[in-house]
Design a protein around this nucleic acid. Structure first.
Length: 419
RNA sequence: GUGGAUAUAGCUUAGAUGGUUAGAGCGCCAGGUUGUGGCCCUGGAGGUCGUGGGUUCGAUUCCCACUAUUCACCCCA
């Protein structure tokens, strides 16, 4: 086929978009309940923003970014995630001077150049939130509970929450040292990927899926057991608070997240039903990120939730999204005079806020009726010469087949009441 | 970047050890009802059988390459 969308992109078509609109509406309500304001930032940013913000060592920056030079020779990148752009906006607009916590949410498309598979696309949609300024575990719980509540409102079941702590730069540095000492004698037994990870990102070795590696790593020290006092009490505080409001979770000592900026709390919501891409929502705290772009030291936390994966999970769980109603009324004219008349009538109906349609293809009455049926019109009015002469027409209820006489003059008012 | 599977109409698909016009269901259009949808009946439109090459008298079918789709690895939403 000559015409098709680029690899990893999809069309959301008119007859399925209602599912997206439904979820988006629930998200907007949720955010309002929690006091989050929407922010919209550009699809593209300067490449350095992501190199610095997401991290030069990450897969995202190393091999997955859509980067190009614009006509002014600037290196531009399509956003591979949402947080960096928002941090940029936060700093650029001096939001640190506004009331805190600063609570923001976004629904965006993001772009990553990688091979596609179930639940993974090159253009994908994310709902995400960010909170700036709150250092304690209280806000961690608010953020986590927000995702949890969204799943509940959508009627999703069986989504599991995993949490972990990656510590602060200080205790992480100490721990990485310890981990490396543990790994050094084992290195030649580990898979090639892990050996490569040893220098670049040794934490990643912990969540390698290779069976052999897992065997060797059974007794590896866990970061969680080596946190400094502050990080430990932060994590304990998070657990207490989750227990307090009744959100269940697992502690996954090996969970590492793929972006460099995370500190302390990290979490994932996972479902077994969305293919190999089990993570529907992932997030964590990024206390050092704002400091990378300004001399202000502002703590932050947020999450990103994959809309495609969310919709897929809803589909899998058989959750029914209410379909929008069809058109209120269809005007079916017969003949030229009636057509001219109907044109004015449908205009008046629409002007009165009624969802009205009329034939524009000059089709037979039968074809018009079929069409009205297909677009699920609630009512049909047939107008021919007789009707125009007598100023009366039949209003047909398409669901029941019941018909009523109405005068053409009163039809707009009448439908206002009915509709 | 690596590996497997797949590719026939708008959609879901049948097909033959290679042989004349490649079938069906759904959908679409029209007619049966010269002014009434859904059910039913009849008819119609719609296919370079993914693309290119090879074998052959002949390829949609066999072989090769490419492309695309899809699943998985890595990684992530």
């Amino acid at each position: 086929m000559a015409v098709q969308s680029p690899k990893g992109t999809r069309d959301i078509l008119p007859w399925e978009v209602y599912k997206w609109q439904y979820v988006e509406k629930i998200i907007a309500e949720l955010c309002r309940n929690f006091g989050y304001g929407e922010i919209r930032t550009p699809v593209f940013e300067h490449t350095e923003l992501f190199q610095k913000g997401v991290g030069d060592a990450t897969d995202i920056v190393q091999k997955e970014m859509y980067t190009f030079l614009d006509k002014g020779g600037r290196s531009i990148t399509l956003r591979p995630e949402g947080t960096a752009g928002i941090v940029r906006s936060y700093v650029e607009h001096g939001m640190a001077n506004l009331a805190h916590p600063m609570k923001l949410y976004y629904i965006i498309t993001a772009y990553r150049h990688e091979n596609v598979q179930k639940g993974r696309y090159r253009e994908f949609n994310q709902f995400g939130i960010e909170v700036f300024g709150a250092p304690g575990p209280s806000v961690d719980v608010e953020v986590i509970s927000m995702a949890d509540m969204l799943f509940k409102r959508l009627g999703l079941k069986g989504i599991e929450l995993n949490i972990n702590s990656l510590g602060c730069p200080a205790c992480r540095r100490e721990y990485v040292q310890e981990l490396k000492e543990f790994l050094t004698p084992l290195l030649e037994n580990l898979c090639i990927d892990c050996r490569n990870r040893f220098e670049r990102n040794p934490l990643r070795i912990l969540d390698c899926k290779n069976e052999k590696c897992r065997q060797h790593l059974k007794d590896a020290p866990a970061l969680l057991d080596n946190l400094c006092d502050e990080c430990k009490s932060h994590f304990d505080g998070l657990r207490e608070r989750l227990d307090n409001i009744g959100i269940g979770y697992y502690v996954d000592k090996n969970m590492v997240r793929g972006l460099d900026y995370y500190t302390r709390t990290v979490f994932e919501f996972i479902s077994p039903n969305v293919g190999a891409q089990a993570t529907i929502c992932g997030g964590g705290r990024y206390d050092g990120l704002v400091g990378l772009f300004s001399d202000q030291d502002v703590p932050g936390i947020g999450f990103a939730l994959g809309m495609e994966r969310l919709l897929m999970e809803m589909e899998n769980q058989g959750i029914e999204v209410p379909k929008p109603d069809g058109v209120d009324i269809f005007i079916a004219p017969i003949g030229k005079t009636a057509d001219i008349f109907a044109e004015k009538l449908v205009y008046q109906l629409r002007n009165a806020g009624i969802n009205a349609e009329k034939d524009v293809m000059g089709r037979s009455l039968k074809a018009q009726m079929k069409y009205a049926d297909k677009i699920e019109a609630a009512y049909v009015v047939v107008i021919g010469d007789n009707e125009i002469e007598s100023n009366k027409a039949v209003l047909r209820n398409m669901k029941t087949g019941e018909e009523k006489d109405v005068s053409l003059d009163s039809i707009v008012n009448r439908l206002k009441k009915t509709g």
